[in-house]
Design a protein around this nucleic acid. Structure first.
Length: 434
DNA sequence: TCTGGGGTCCTAGGACCC
DNA sequence: TCTGGGGTCCTAGGACCC
């Protein structure tokens, strides 16, 4: 049996822990550049704000409905996530942290009333960390996800599902008949693994609910669609196709991509931006102890500015030797950028992606004798840079090519409504007044 | 004027080999 | 000049997730 613990409206809930004025009001958290809504409180959902709604289209609700908007504060959310996951792990023997706001817990070997145990865990998460959650339980991960969906919907809209499943839903504990009616009440597009492309195809085939999908012949699901959908069908039937990842796997690719705060036209500005992205990606790479064999750099204009000339360019640059050296990667990125840059366009976005990752200890050294193996000095230099930045803040040491942080970078992102670093910056600590 | 960012896996098709 | 079949590896693109 698996549990899925998922934070409600996670980013908004993190903000509410430290700012009680946000409670009971419609609140959204905005993406980078304050572009669009990426988290919504229940009150904001009730106003009809969609996931991903552009801010400029909904900002009139500030005046009309008292909507509050915040710039994303990912340092805060990451820290709150760590606290939540550390507690949630106690629900069973094994935990897989699946995303910033949700984890699976393997409940096998856990005795007693799982529903009651989950209810106590939920209460503890609320009391100790301040985060509201819902917990779904089922014999497969897909059914645990589905149970979680039911728990959330039943909490937000009482009566949307038969029975009492708000906050905690244990699909393994309901009678077969009741389980079928819960599946029948769930739209097929709410099933984990069914996205916006698949859903219309399933509808056309007469499959509208989770129960319909459960009753689809698995062989047909595979033949007509894919193995992935076949697995989904099996998991809905209670046959597990995948267990938990017991330890966090190293990433197979690492990206840093950003939209700019405003249009960028000059090669020199793009160079600064991609240099900065490269060092951020390289730092992530070193944190997991990997080296990259190839990288990709891309630049593109905004598809939303239709009346302007459109261009999207990308190139994959092989690195002569796997490396984790920021400067070596930045050189490759610059070569790539020069090859794809076209003057005369207003660029909106760029990015760097690292591929062919391998653990640093298994890297083959270059055969050619004229090129020295990665020197001890370089890797110590990188360690020092990472250490200083961890201790004194992200941009304390950076590549000169990235320009000066916060000082006239044409591509800098806009974040006008960011909350303080309550849990990660000493000067932002809240003070309790007696 | 204003529309995010970071991942994984699967599949089809091409290149190449025997 | 005609003619076959099967396998592997790689890559790009699609679909999904949060």
């Amino acid at each position: 049996m698996y549990a899925l613990i998922d934070g409600n409206n996670f980013y908004v809930s993190c903000e509410r822990v430290f700012n009680p004025r946000l409670r009971g009001r419609p609140v959204v958290v905005l993406s980078n550049n304050d572009g669009c809504a990426i988290a919504r409180s229940n009150e904001a959902k009730a106003l009809g704000i969609r996931m991903g709604a552009p801010w400029y289209q909904i900002r009139h609700l500030e005046q009309e409905a008292g909507l509050l908007a915040l710039s994303a504060n990912f340092a805060l959310y990451g820290d709150m996530s760590d606290r939540m996951m550390a507690l949630a792990a106690g629900l069973g023997h094994h935990q897989e942290v699946y995303s910033i706001d949700e984890c699976f817990v393997d409940l096998s070997g856990i005795r007693g009333d799982l529903e009651d145990r989950s209810r106590r865990m939920r209460h503890r998460l609320l009391q100790w960390v301040g985060l509201p959650t819902c917990i779904g339980i089922g014999p497969t991960r897909t059914l645990a996800k589905l149970a979680n969906h039911i728990a959330k919907a039943a909490e937000r809209k009482p009566g949307s599902y038969p029975g009492s499943h708000a906050q905690i839903c244990h699909l393994g504990a309901v009678a077969p008949q009741a389980r079928e009616s819960l599946l029948a009440a769930t739209a097929v597009n709410d099933v984990w693994g069914v996205g916006w492309r698949l859903a219309p195809q399933l509808h056309a085939a007469g499959i509208h609910s989770a129960l319909d999908l459960c009753r689809l012949d698995p062989a047909l699901a595979r033949r007509r669609w894919s193995v992935a959908l076949e697995h989904t069908v099996q998991e809905l039937r209670g046959i597990a196709c995948a267990g938990l990842e017991h330890e966090a796997q190293a990433r197979r690719e690492i990206a840093c991509t950003r939209s700019f705060g405003g249009p960028v036209t000059e090669l020199s500005d793009l160079q600064e931006a991609v240099t900065d992205f490269t060092s951020r990606a390289a730092e992530k790479l070193r944190r997991q102890g990997s080296r990259a064999g190839r990288l990709m750099v891309f630049i593109r204009t905004s598809p939303f500015r239709r009346q302007e000339g459109q261009y999207s360019g990308s190139v994959v640059v092989p690195l002569r030797q796997r490396t984790d050296d920021s400067a070596a990667m930045a050189r490759a990125v610059h070569d790539g950028l020069r090859a794809i840059y076209r003057p005369g366009f207003r660029y909106a976005r760029a990015g760097v992606v690292l591929f062919d990752l391998a653990q640093a200890d298994g890297v083959q050294h270059e055969l050619a004798l004229e090129v020295a193996p990665p020197s001890e000095r370089r890797s110590r230099l990188m360690q020092v840079i990472d250490g200083v930045n961890r201790r004194h803040g992200r941009d304390t040491l950076q590549l000169a090519g990235a320009g000066l942080a916060g000082d006239g970078r044409a591509w800098a992102m806009r974040q006008e409504r960011r909350s303080p670093g309550y849990t990660t910056q000493w000067q932002d600590l809240l003070e309790a007044k007696a």
